[in-house]
Nucleic acid binder design. Structure first.
Length: 461
RNA sequence: GGAGACGUGCCUGAGUGGUCCAAGGGAACGGUUUGCAAAACCGUAAAGCCACCGGUUCGAAUCCGGUCGUCUCCUCCA
């Protein structure tokens, strides 16, 4: 029985889908004006893990993750670059897809774009005005009247009075209430704009998600996810918009993932302390990054640094080592390990616990191997691969993982094999000096040799 | 100022009333294996009371209160 932490109620709850065996899930995606950083990577990987696990658990999952492709920052950046905003967003959408593919993130069922959902947004805003939840300002902007919505603050645990007491709310004479937020922004000349009943303009950020989720998932869906920082105001505003519009609850479970941090500080664009995914992938394999993310619980803070990534590398080396050279086989069904794996995952996606079970399997495989039980080892190997696959791990062929690619100026596979053959001859002659010389020579070039009963294998460290 | 989260070994990271003298990974130490290594297996050590203080309970890392510390949100942010 899946239990998940619902941010709306601040506790774990048993998960019950709206429709039996089906799940509709929406996650707030990226605003595409720059390369994705590790914080984005965490959202991608975490919800990819959720998506994979829910499917493995037997649900038919419709997973929607939007793309915000119109926004102030996009307009500003395009202006700086002297290019059309659509050219900018197209480029960064492509880059985002490259990063996702590298990280083994499955494409969502749908990736709606804000600019392709404008009519739905306009319709929704119109409904909100009709129902008295929104009003058009004198300047052509349309605002949501926060005070009109009774449940405002229920997700983020805020009270209107507390918000008003905050010093950071700017006074704005166009708004009836400083807390009101914009649904439609009148366009300045030269800015991208769409026609609307309130004049040419563009949608506010919050209405985008309400409209896109409703368009693709309907008035009521199961799970809504996103980064923890979106809880307020973005998700709070989404609730206000969607629920005022349809007249009932729209999302059953809200999930928020924790931040990636640098030296105990949130990694963010505004702080400037971020690493892009592609930067990190120059030093580490994508699977190491994925392991690093999944090795802590999705709601915990995650500190980025070289040590945890190195640890991830060592951990994956151990797991792949267990799989190396195993014959293809069929995994046992409903084994004790699999049950425990599922129990861990059912407990609000406890991936660290689930990963611990992968290591137990690795140990078991190595043990069986030593005992000469090759067939059983292969079965457990198949199980290890299947369970890891639910996390999007261990999908690479072990040989490829270990051998990787020869870097610039590095030894080719053939050159390495030749030296190993030469060393094998020296071994037969018990010419240990020559043997060790070759091994040291290779080691100096990042090649590690491992002698086993069946012969010598090697890996790029 | 308001709201909230967190504080577990050398590092990382689970565990949220008894099965915990606390999982898993990394690092360390010993043994087996190896020509020697590496990898692997077996084992050991490492958290003297799970930030600190007090309370509830037959029993707490786990619940409650306080203290200290760290972080987040209240402005765009995943």
């Amino acid at each position: 029985m899946l239990q998940l932490y619902n941010s709306l109620h601040k506790r774990k709850q048993a998960f019950t889908p709206i429709e039996a065996n089906k799940i509709r899930m929406y996650v707030c995606g990226m605003t595409v004006y720059d390369y994705c950083h590790l914080g984005h990577a965490r959202v991608m990987v975490v919800f990819d893990m959720v998506y994979r696990y829910l499917q493995a658990a037997g649900y038919a999952v419709t997973y929607v993750r939007n793309i915000t492709d119109i926004d102030d920052k996009i307009i500003a950046r395009a202006h700086e670059n002297g290019e059309a905003f659509s050219a900018l967003t197209q480029r960064f959408i492509a880059a985002m897809h490259e990063d996702e593919d590298a990280l083994g993130v499955l494409r969502p069922s749908a990736e709606p774009r804000a600019t392709q959902t404008i009519p739905e947004m306009i319709a929704m805003i119109s409904t909100l005005i009709e129902k008295g939840y929104a009003y058009a300002g004198a300047n052509g902007d349309v605002y949501y009247a926060v005070a009109k919505f009774d449940g405002y603050g229920k997700l983020s645990g805020r009270k209107l009075d507390d918000l008003r007491a905050g010093e950071r709310i700017a006074v704005d004479e166009v708004k009836n209430d400083p807390l009101d937020f914009v649904l439609w922004k009148a366009a300045k000349p030269e800015e991208p704009a769409w026609d609307s009943p309130w004049g040419r303009g563009r949608p506010g950020w919050h209405i985008e998600c309400s409209a896109m989720s409703q368009k693709l998932l309907g008035d009521r869906f199961d799970i809504h996810g996103g980064g923890h920082d979106l809880q307020f105001p973005h998700h709070e505003n989404e609730i206000a918009q969607s629920e005022a519009c349809i007249g009932h609850q729209s999302v059953n479970y809200w999930m928020h993932n924790g931040f990636v941090r640098i030296n105990d500080e949130k990694m963010s664009k505004s702080l400037g302390n971020f690493f892009t995914i592609r930067e990190v992938l120059r030093h580490y394999k994508a699977e190491e990054v994925r392991y690093f993310i999944l090795n802590s619980h999705y709601r915990s803070p995650l500190n980025y640094g070289s040590e945890p990534l190195d640890t991830a590398r060592a951990a994956l080396t151990r797991l792949y080592n267990a799989l190396r050279g195993l014959a293809p086989s069929t995994a046992p069904v409903d084994s004790e390990q699999e049950q425990r794996f599922r129990r861990a995952m059912d407990d609000d996606f406890n991936t660290p616990e689930a990963i611990a079970i992968l290591f137990e399997l690795a140990r078991e495989i190595n043990r069986l191997r030593q005992e000469g039980a090759a067939a059983q080892a292969a079965e457990q190997g198949a199980l290890l691969q299947r369970l890891a696959g639910i996390l999007g791990l261990l999908a690479t062929d072990p040989e490829d993982w270990f051998k990787g690619e020869a870097g610039d100026g590095g030894l080719t596979d053939a050159a390495i094999e030749a030296l190993i053959a030469e060393r094998a001859a020296a071994r037969t002659n018990k010419d240990w000096a020559r043997c060790d010389g070759i091994r040291d020579q290779l080691k100096a070039q990042g090649i590690v040799l491992e002698d086993a009963a069946g012969g010598t294998s090697w890996r790029r460290a």
